[in-house]
Write a protein that binds this DNA or RNA. Sequence first.
DNA 1: TCTATATTTCAGTAATTTCTGAAAATGCAG
DNA 2: CTGCATTTTCAGAAATTACTGAAATATAGA
Lengths: 181, 181
Amino acid sequence: MELPPLIQTFVLHFGEMGSRWGINRTVGQIYAALFVADRPLNADDLVLKLGMSRSNVSMGLKELESWRLVRLSHLPGDRREYFSAPEDVWQIFMTLADERLRREVEPTLTTLRDAILATPISAEEQHAQIRMRQMHDLIDLLTTWFADVRKLSPGTLQQLLKMGGAVVRLLEMKDKVVGRK
Amino acid sequence: MELPPLIQTFVLHFGEMGSRWGINRTVGQIYAALFVADRPLNADDLVLKLGMSRSNVSMGLKELESWRLVRLSHLPGDRREYFSAPEDVWQIFMTLADERLRREVEPTLTTLRDAILATPISAEEQHAQIRMRQMHDLIDLLTTWFADVRKLSPGTLQQLLKMGGAVVRLLEMKDKVVGRK
DNA sequence: TCTATATTTCAGTAATTTCTGAAAATGCAG
DNA sequence: CTGCATTTTCAGAAATTACTGAAATATAGA
């Protein structure tokens, strides 16, 4: 692995984290290397930097493309493809969240809905349905909230996040003004 | 696997999801079975329901205990340990979030902070540090926000989530009242 | 204490996932 | 077209992770 020590630590850490998140280690390393790079990198750059096989890099990049986490570009007079991570970390986070929602959360909600709609044939199944509905409602609440704040401009969203729990005081204020109990 | 079809689908789905999240398939199945069960289950119940070895169940339960996701109980005149998932799905979600923060996010923040504090020995490292700081600040913003709303009562939090992006209108209202531009 | 029951550990095996080199496919430049 | 640079595919090898049965350990009650 041909990387400055500071970057190597980061790349290795992300490899480990990747494997804890169902993304494999080398894919994590590739993304980390692209993320900190000061210019787009081609597949051979990554082979050199990360010390893995060409084919492995190719598969890793395909995987990252399927997550919409990399940008493709070309250099004049160079046929090779160059890859980079988006500049805006906030956008990277949103893309990641969107993909996880689509790949994991949505299928789970579908499974839950189907099970909830089925006719229970025993008390055991009836209780299971109650539990599944609780889980469904929680996931639904969280994803609906996310889809909603997702639409805000990054600036507004950031402002909102910085406020944290303090927004509650505003709610109370509003209730007082409007006159709710 | 000795489970009613409706429950079996749920258990299998959770097994698959578990393996996408760095939690292994059988641990996911065990938790799913406990989650929907209408009474606490002992290890042998799980062996019967899920068709896996006694030792595998034992290891899975240990893993779930380390995530603080199961409750232990005993039946009068029965030495065996009985396991159950907490009643409150909201609490389960919070525990999961807390553990993931502790195990994954905090070590990542530490790695990032260390790298940011190091002295860069090249332009490449200097650029990497800028990127790492961007990532650090985003993760820090999100975790700080979470720690803050985490303290709210489930009721208040739920109310807040239901509002979604609408809270922004309140912020604007406040700014108008207070007189900010 | 001893015994019976329950749980955990762990070494070996099985299953799965990751990784590689070689071959095939792609696609641009001439 | 043809030739060459580049990327992708894929079958097998390597590495990792999961799972099991058997043995060890723990513990409640007699």
